[in-house]
């Protein structure tokens, strides 16, 4: 089960209607290489699940997609990532609008030390998306509704966001991301800190969001990948081993490493 040098990804890494295209992406933390020549398309309005053992580079790859790795000094990226055929690593690319187009939800809910309302209003405010208080109210309400949180918080919009439960906080973070109306949403283990009920709510939400957004989700739960995604990408030690429609990956995996992982022989 060793890794083949210059492994070519098995399955169907490319898509007919790609929103994001990664080509030969290599990522280094200082001297250490964390991602090896990954090429992958993420199709418009699809949910793609990134799975693989801990430390295989899922988060690293995900963070490349909206240049969050820029905040890490020692991190260096080679290759191309194209959003609607525009290279996001091109020198003239401005990360501020990019991150508004490619939003991110993190593993641990991280609401700002502000009220629920201000948490959601944060993005629209900094991007100058709205001009009147009424519009802002509307955006906040709509985002909270889409994130399935509105009914639970509508009478305490001005209470601190940190006072919500873990699951509510995570939905607040999703609402916050939706509020800037992104095209792609990246989610890094969004349910790992949540109980099954909160998880179910978020999975339901992901399913609904698919209509309007392209979603890439990192998860350690095979069931979750099976429930929410159309395609699944399996990473192993920084290489992209296999990409296939989710039902295929979980029934007839092409690569022995994928099979070993999903049958629980390691990971």
């Amino acid at each position: 089960m060793s890794i083949i040098e210059n492994h070519k990804t098995d399955g169907q890494p490319f898509s007919e209607n790609p929103k994001l295209k990664a080509r030969d992406v290599r990522v280094f933390y200082g001297e250490k290489q964390a991602i090896f020549d990954v090429s992958l398309d993420i199709g418009a309005n699809e949910v793609i699940a990134l799975i693989g053992p801990s430390g295989c580079g899922k988060s690293t790859f995900l963070r490349c997609l909206n240049r969050m790795n820029d905040t890490i000094d020692i991190c260096r990226i080679e290759g191309e990532i194209l959003l609607d055929d525009e290279n996001i690593y091109a020198p003239k690319m401005d990360v501020v609008p990019l991150r508004a187009r490619v939003g991110m939800v993190f593993q641990k809910p991280n609401p700002f030390p502000k009220s629920i309302y201000d948490n959601v209003a944060y993005g629209p405010r900094i991007h100058g998306l709205v001009h009147h208080r009424d519009e802002l109210d509307e955006v906040v309400e709509k985002s909270l509704q889409r994130a399935g949180l509105w009914n639970e918080v509508k009478d305490r919009l001005h209470a601190p966001g940190t006072g919500l439960s873990g699951g509510q906080q995570q939905r607040l973070c999703i609402a916050r991301t939706i509020a800037v109306d992104p095209e792609v949403i990246l989610m890094d283990e969004p349910c790992s800190a949540l109980d099954p009920i909160a998880t179910a709510k978020i999975e339901e939400l992901i399913d609904e969001l698919r209509e309007n957004y392209t979603i890439a989700i990192v998860t350690h739960s095979m069931q979750q990948a099976a429930r929410v995604s159309q395609r699944t990408a399996y990473f192993h030690l920084g290489q992209l081993i296999e990409v296939n429609p989710t039902d295929l990956v979980f029934t007839t995996p092409e690569h022995t490493l994928t099979e070993a992982y999903i049958t629980g022989r390691f990971g």
């Binding site: 905040t71 993190f106 944060y122």
Partner: peptide
């Protein structure tokens, strides 16, 4: 102040000074 708060703000497309003024300093 936890890095995750800064990440959350950068992830929404905030600039450094916006993040500092609106997220880091209040925290």
């Amino acid at each position: 102040v936890p890095q995750s708060l800064r990440d959350g703000s950068y992830g929404l497309g905030a600039t450094r000074s916006e993040t500092i003024r609106q997220v880091v300093l209040p925290a």
